[in-house]
Amino acid sequence: MKKIALTLFLVLGSLTIQAQEATWQTDMNEAIKISKKTKKPLFLFFTGSDWCGWCMRLQKEVFKTPEFEKWAKKNVVLVELDYPRKTPQIPAIQKQNAELQQTFAVQGYPTVWFVNASKKDGKINLEKLGSTGYLAGGPTTWLTAADQILATNKSTKAKYTTN
């Protein structure tokens, strides 16, 4: 009986943890739909998930923390643009990610871009708000930098809309 109760507890506990994890989009078209609906900017995370040590470190120290997940749900639409060496990807995602890597001139990983996106006449328009990468100091340091990028954009928009 104790084994059954323990097993049930572990299964329910892991389901609860999974339910709390942030949702990462991989398809830009879907991410743009969500962004448009929620009026939140896109958070483009360029990563080498299965080979980039700094990417894995950023994930562990920041992106997989409760602080980040709470912040992300409130502020952005998460998009993972992965460039794995061992993990297979469908060709459409590979093509999308390669094009975005060129568009943003990403040369190192991890790179995070904050963008506003719109789609007009079937073409995606991306307004760059700012970028960052790995920052030492955990979620507090990283989120402070992210908030500064988003705040700068909001204050700039306010200036242009009031003039």
Rank of each mutant, 00 (worst) to 15 (best):
M1A: 13
I4T: 09
A5L: 15
L8S: 14
T16V: 11
I17S: 09
I17E: 12
Q18V: 12
A19P: 02
A19R: 10
Q20A: 14
E21T: 13
E21M: 13
T23A: 11
T23L: 05
D27L: 08
D27F: 11
D27G: 11
D27E: 15
E30L: 08
I32S: 07
K33W: 00
K33C: 03
I34D: 04
I34M: 10
K36W: 08
K37H: 13
T38M: 11
T38P: 03
L42V: 08
F43M: 03
L44C: 01
F46V: 03
T47H: 06
S49Y: 07
D50M: 02
D50G: 10
W51V: 05
W51F: 00
W51E: 00
W51R: 02
C52R: 01
G53T: 12
G53A: 14
G53H: 11
L58T: 06
E61K: 05
T65H: 00
T65W: 03
E69L: 01
K70Y: 06
W71Q: 01
W71Y: 10
V77F: 03
L78V: 06
L81Y: 01
D82N: 13
P84H: 12
P84W: 08
P84F: 11
T87V: 12
Q89I: 07
P91N: 11
P91M: 03
A92R: 15
K95R: 09
N97T: 08
N97Y: 08
N97V: 04
N97F: 04
A98M: 09
Q101V: 01
Q102H: 06
Q102C: 00
T103K: 09
T103Q: 14
A105H: 11
V106E: 04
Q107M: 10
Q107C: 01
T111D: 04
T111Y: 07
V112I: 15
W113E: 14
N116P: 03
K119V: 12
K120S: 12
D121Y: 09
D121C: 01
G122T: 12
K123G: 00
I124L: 09
I124D: 15
L129W: 05
G133E: 04
G133N: 08
G133W: 04
Y134W: 06
G138H: 10
P139R: 11
T140G: 05
T141V: 15
T141M: 13
T141G: 02
W142V: 06
L143N: 02
D147L: 08
A151D: 14
T152S: 13
N153R: 09
N153D: 15
N153I: 00
N153C: 03
S155P: 00
T156W: 12
T156A: 15
T156D: 14
K157N: 14
A158Y: 12
T161E: 15
N163C: 08
